[in-house]
Design a protein around this nucleic acid. Structure first.
Lengths: 103, 103
DNA sequence: GTCTTGATTCGATGTTCGTCGATACAAGCT
DNA sequence: AGCTTGTATCGACGAACATCGAATCAAGAC
């Protein structure tokens, strides 16, 4: 793994290093059938303020894990699967290294 | 996903939120055929001091991503696949949610 | 025993992060 | 125009983090 690749991957993992963000991503993923979740549906599930949720959503967005769009008064968020697939591939590679060397 | 589960998963992702630790894990995984890598083989690949490498290895160990053992003068590290498999499962679940709802 | 080498721990320092209150922005309604 | 509701940004604060130098521990060589 190159240094640049490690920097990229670590930045994505950092976006998932907070319990609030992990739950946000999970909720957004689970609600994908509804073509996006409104922020007002996410916020009441957490014990932190609305500004803090907005801050965490921004982190997830900057990591390209989610994207959003304003529809009238509300803003809807949905999952961007590409980054998650990339992380899954990186983790899978480390386990594959182990498995092949154990054989 | 429960709050407790999110706390656990986030803690593991936090251990992977630094480029040095991502590379350390990758190197340890790649060297699994040698029954563990010595710290002295890992350190020269990085631009930080040996104490810092030791600090990062401790983080990875506390996250149960790796384990170590002293063999004579040297300390050897190897991969613990269980935690990585758990992270892979969590990420895969979010993508699976998306795929099933898209169908 | 002393010396050397490999590795961890301790203490300190500058930086980043999570959180909140206050403020600003966006859009609909009257 | 104002008012209200939903959302994002700004500023500040305390906590956590990455890094290093110094000290410490562990094990072998002498």
């Amino acid at each position: 793994m190159t240094v640049d690749e490690a920097v990229d991957v670590a930045a994505a993992f950092k976006a998932l290093s907070d319990p609030v963000r992990v739950r946000l991503l999970s909720m957004i993923a689970a609600a994908q059938a509804e073509e996006g979740v409104c922020v007002c549906e996410l916020t009441p599930a957490f014990a932190v303020s609305q500004q803090t949720i907005s801050h965490h959503l921004k982190q997830l967005r900057q990591a390209r894990l989610i994207d959003c769009e304003r529809r009238g008064t509300w803003v809807y968020y949905w999952l961007v699967p590409g980054t998650i697939e990339r992380l899954t591939a990186v983790l899978g590679r480390t386990i594959a290294d182990r498995a092949s060397s154990a054989a």
